[in-house]
Design a protein around this nucleic acid. Structure first.
Lengths: 233, 233
DNA sequence: TCAAAAGTGTTGCATCTACACCCATGG
DNA sequence: CCATGGGTGTAGATGCAACACTTTTGA
């Protein structure tokens, strides 16, 4: 990380990075170990102070690249959080102090929303801030600052745009069966679809292509694989 | 306005304030007169540097209140703009200098989106920055900084959410005829609806109430008035 | 041959679209 | 009595929801 002179001390960019694994929606969190400066373990969203020479989008890309070493990941700004008393509790202030940011100073966060295919994601990389790990959306612990609220808003945004913006395919593997796709939508939207109606619906979408491949090695009828190909213009 | 010590010098809040009049969508712009410090007239969105003690929402409310002296107006944050070279052209830098903000410094803008009923709005108030005036959306001149881009994004946001979020009624007068409502949607969404189908549709919406009142004094059959009453919970 | 998931159609109901004429008023 | 915009219904097409059995594979 560059030194403080190049940073806006009160403006940070944080990312809610979603992945889908074990039939669950997961979020990438950073776990900061306890130390002499601040007692408890803390969980937070990946983020950093904004570098003066970066655009907001570039800052978010850098955060993402530092964690996953991937580029070209789906990334979108979704909201900016800035209540004056965001940085209020003691543990948060201790951490700000320990990490040489300005304690007691209000932090304004431009929040981004990223979608990654977990099977492409190499878990070897570590943040400078601490260990990173996938956490199922409904097992998220208390996070620093107002990060829980940020995750909540990102989650709402994901659900609201999952179908219309076709962003679900950023989370799914390249090839998937229709049963996987159905279960994916059902999990994230918390609904149930009728199997036949779901398939009828999907097959009427031009951007889902049937492949000449089937899943192998299962003790039942093999499922046909499909892939996502966005429509031109 | 408070003095500079209380402000974040690089973080501003700007508002795109929409109104509907003369069958057109309008935006409230500020016109700054030419002076010895900067030559041309300039048009800009109402906005201000963020006060350290305000939340983002409060800052937007203040900007709005200073212009319209109204509270309780529909207001929503919609995007944050922050490319490093936003403040690049000469006239913009001259104005920044003249208005004692920091020249050459990047400005990050949290943009808000407001909807007002123009007939409630008293045009007597003036900004400290200059004259304010309603400008039809398709007659907007070149604005300072990237404000044209901000208006464009706000406009897209309005169209995308006009129906689902029922926000159109924030722009319309309390009482309206179905023909007015139809023409309003058609103007903003740039579509055409069939009159009978439109009315059938509207009448199936629970939040539109028929009044016992009619328009008077027109040289044709008087139109029934309707009003908007959001559904409970 | 059994277990387990894949795959497949039809029917009724609700919703959307297209379309043309009479009504109430002021001038 | 005329001009002007207000107001109304029906029929066909399309889209959505409900529902159960056969197929293919590995063990």
């Amino acid at each position: 990380m560059s030194n403080l002179e190049n940073k806006y001390t009160n403006l940070s960019v944080d990312c809610v990075i979603f992945g889908y694994r074990n039939e669950q929606l997961n979020v990438l969190l950073i776990k900061r170990k306890g130390s002499e400066n601040f007692s408890k373990e803390q969980y937070a969203l990946p983020g950093d102070l904004l570098d003066k020479k970066d655009s907001l989008d570039e800052a978010a890309e850098k955060i993402l690249f530092n964690l996953t070493h991937f580029k070209g990941i789906y990334l979108e700004q979704f909201y900016t959080f800035g209540a004056p008393r965001r940085v209020s509790n003691k543990a948060d202030r201790e951490w700000l102090k320990a990490s040489r940011k300005i304690p007691g100073e209000r932090v304004i966060t431009v929040a981004y929303f990223a979608l990654v295919k977990v099977e492409d994601y190499s878990a070897d990389y570590r943040s400078n801030d601490g260990e990173i790990s996938w956490t199922p959306i409904n097992e998220i612990p208390q996070l620093t600052f107002d990060h829980n609220q940020i995750v909540e808003k990102a989650h709402a945004y994901l659900r609201a745009n999952l179908i219309d913006k076709q962003i679900g395919f950023e989370l799914l593997p390249e090839k998937f069966t229709l049963s996987e796709l159905q279960s994916f939508y059902e999990t994230i939207l918390n609904v149930a679809y009728d199997k036949r109606n779901f398939r009828k619906n999907i097959k009427s979408q031009t951007f889902i292509k049937k492949l000449d491949e089937k899943v192998e090695g299962q003790a039942h009828r093999p499922a046909r694989l499909y892939t996502y190909e966005p429509d031109k213009q």
